[in-house]
């Protein structure tokens, strides 16, 4: 007798990479804190996923998600584009400077 297959979608991974989960959770947390309304969020996300350069198969959904979050935070004066660029670059440098197998810490940024 063949095993009944699992219901569709039950076993599909929710996030394909950890940063997607973090980006998702940040939006949920910021909304719960009242930083923005869910309607405000849906509007920004909608604008991002409708951009002509968005992937037709939706594979860049979480890239769009992050872009929408950055835009909303910039509008609210909570994180400017330059600030995000600078901290992201520091994280990249820290990652390169950290020996393999050790946790990456922002303090490991050689320029910090």
């Amino acid at each position: 007798m063949s095993r009944p297959e699992l219901p569709a979608g039950i076993d599909e991974p929710v996030f394909s990479e950890p940063w997607q989960a973090e980006a998702f959770a940040m939006v949920v947390a910021l909304h719960e804190r009242g930083v923005f309304s869910w309607a405000e969020w849906a509007e920004r996300l909608s604008a991002e996923v409708k951009r002509p350069e968005a992937a037709a198969d939706g594979s860049d959904y979480y890239e769009r998600w992050v872009a929408a979050l950055e835009r909303l935070l910039a509008e609210k004066g909570l994180a400017g584009h330059d600030e995000v660029d600078a901290v992201a670059a520091a994280w990249e440098r820290a990652a390169h400077a950290t020996p393999h197998g050790r946790p990456i810490l922002l303090e490991n940024d050689p320029l910090a």
């Binding site: 940063w19 940040m26 600078a86």
Partner: peptide, 30 residues
């Protein structure tokens, strides 16, 4: 993209708008 997300997390944590424990709980839930 991972570095940008980390950067956002760093900035928002510094501002006291999110904390990593709460983020972990949300991820685990979903």
């Amino acid at each position: 993209m991972a570095a940008r997300v980390r950067a956002l997390e760093t900035i928002l944590t510094r501002k006291g708008l999110i904390d990593s424990a709460a983020i972990d709980v949300i991820v685990d839930t979903y």
